[in-house]
Design a protein around this nucleic acid. Sequence first.
DNA 1: CATGAATGAGCCTTCATTCAT
DNA 2: TATGAATGAAGGCTCATTCAT
Lengths: 202, 202, 202, 202
Amino acid sequence: MAQGGKQRGNSEKRRRILDGALRAFAKKGFYNTKVSEIASEAGVADGTIYLYFKNKDDLLISLFEDRMEWINNRLEQELENLEGGFEEKLHGFVRMHFLLVLENRDLAEFITVELRQSAKFVKEYDNPKFGAYLKILQSLIEEGQASGELRDDLDSRIMSRAIFGALDEVLLQMTLGKTKPEDVEVRTRMLSDILLHGLCKR
Amino acid sequence: MAQGGKQRGNSEKRRRILDGALRAFAKKGFYNTKVSEIASEAGVADGTIYLYFKNKDDLLISLFEDRMEWINNRLEQELENLEGGFEEKLHGFVRMHFLLVLENRDLAEFITVELRQSAKFVKEYDNPKFGAYLKILQSLIEEGQASGELRDDLDSRIMSRAIFGALDEVLLQMTLGKTKPEDVEVRTRMLSDILLHGLCKR
Amino acid sequence: MAQGGKQRGNSEKRRRILDGALRAFAKKGFYNTKVSEIASEAGVADGTIYLYFKNKDDLLISLFEDRMEWINNRLEQELENLEGGFEEKLHGFVRMHFLLVLENRDLAEFITVELRQSAKFVKEYDNPKFGAYLKILQSLIEEGQASGELRDDLDSRIMSRAIFGALDEVLLQMTLGKTKPEDVEVRTRMLSDILLHGLCKR
Amino acid sequence: MAQGGKQRGNSEKRRRILDGALRAFAKKGFYNTKVSEIASEAGVADGTIYLYFKNKDDLLISLFEDRMEWINNRLEQELENLEGGFEEKLHGFVRMHFLLVLENRDLAEFITVELRQSAKFVKEYDNPKFGAYLKILQSLIEEGQASGELRDDLDSRIMSRAIFGALDEVLLQMTLGKTKPEDVEVRTRMLSDILLHGLCKR
DNA sequence: CATGAATGAGCCTTCATTCAT
DNA sequence: TATGAATGAAGGCTCATTCAT
């Protein structure tokens, strides 16, 4: 599932369709995007889409899987390269989240806007790849707790969602406005800072 | 705007329609809900909806306005009654947010799921009532900064969004699962705690 | 029939509705005119129309009857007052047709545009008042034939229609463009002239 | 314009739709004909119509263009083959008008009934092909005037409309009743006769 | 594999008509 | 009589999906 029709691991055309869909969904949202628009964006015929995806829903889900997997991979890889303790790791995580997603503005729009909507109303899809994202964050927190850097009176499952929510909402704001590169740094610092030390003066 | 058709004093039917729409949207999402379903949910004829709202989009927007206004009013009112400094106020804010929205499960679904989608794709609607919500949060932060309780190296506009994002995401999780009353308290404490003092041990 | 609901020979309101309908139909045509537009044009409530007319079709038909009867009466009355032979009478007829209808521009639009459409598709209505109009013309021709002024190798039924057709089409042209009073005289002379003596030089 | 959607070389389906529309409009009139009826009359799916025409209005206009162009072509072609002076030409014109249109009874209904209605209320359409028809008639008259056969105190623009009006109205009568072939000849003779020489005895 | 014309189910919206006041 | 809010049947149009080429 989430890989309808034939699937040939990855053809050039399948990729073109996913890319086209991302552009189209980012511009007008899932429900306002016609399959024919995706097709023309991808430079293929309408019918071709159905050779690679079972239907429009499946295309959406596949796109999620694809992009979330890419994000997760990049995130984990960066995280491994990160020296230092929890503070550095969280800071790096926030920064990567922003950079990765903003690297492709359409991806930002897509993630911030479609994730929730779709998660709930597209079939019974439970979005495993987003689950994996949360797991990464959760593991990070649990590591911090294990190493004694973090308070252990916090439920890592809830915390990971809260952090994602904060990141995502700030990202949405950045997406809608026009974010300059330095803004990313400012927001990264600000967010990782309050996540680590809170709003209060110490 | 956000008030199509006539409206008369007979606001009773208008209310029934808004209530029906909330139930329907919560159940299936805006785009999967038929106008006729809203009508039957509201106990009116299809055509009646168009006496009170210009079209389906207008109904969605009106519903936002209506509910956000209700939330904002309740929130401000509670905030005034709150004794104590910033810590107490933020705690109260988080608690109220959760309670108000969970008081009506449909409202929770609606807010967490439709807010973003709609904000971007329904006409040029810029969602002033959500803006007002953020203003309340922002003012709260600025008060804290003025009173010296809060760090003033933080941009209140960004912080308010981060906080909303965190609340909203955790709320989504609560909505999807089955939250017991005590869970609300746990999460309230947890969230206001890390927002105030961060994840790190002090 | 053609006088639905109650009918009280003629109430002030019935008249207002017919007048409003004429204005509305002239402006947008029967099928593009909403009953509510007629009502507001007439200054009555929507429902009031149904106290005087069975339905929208009946209103159209009644309007025809009313206006054609008015035209017929005026026409016959003028014709009686006309001195001279057939030539004068036909000339007078043409002139009256133009003047009467152009006296009220809306009436002109209504007659030229709705007459045919409606005659055929509104119920089985066979438009007796238009039949009466043709009868007047036909009688005129037959008188001329009887008095020996007119050729009697012509079928008066067909001729009456041909004459009406010519008048009506020229009227349509006048209606669409902006006709000055002197244009009416010019066209009257031209039309009665060729009807009497033909296009050829003698 | 007047050519919505795509159109491809597959003009066969486009033709089927136009034919179906003609039948349907003739039977019930434009406003009483459902798009789905046209589709079934044409033997295509409802949606197919929108591949060839922008909407129902565009279909009507396109049908006009198509049929009037056909009439105009046939008319001009016949006119060229006609020997003799103005009398013969006008006679031929009248005859052709009747024959062409009656050749297809539906076309007769369509032309006589929908032409005016539509001309005025369907968008801003100014019906160029009907203008071309009038031009043919007008040129015919002007030729007659140039050759000295016709009186030159007549405005050819007005005359062409009057003639069309007469023809059209008589045609309407023929359409509604049952015309036998010999009737066409009788009416042709009668009409061209009075147009040429008038109603009066000479 | 690829195409894109064709399909037809489905939905939003309109508006003639009704009826409680 | 008069009103106008309410009704709900009806229809134009869209668009995801199919399938013959």
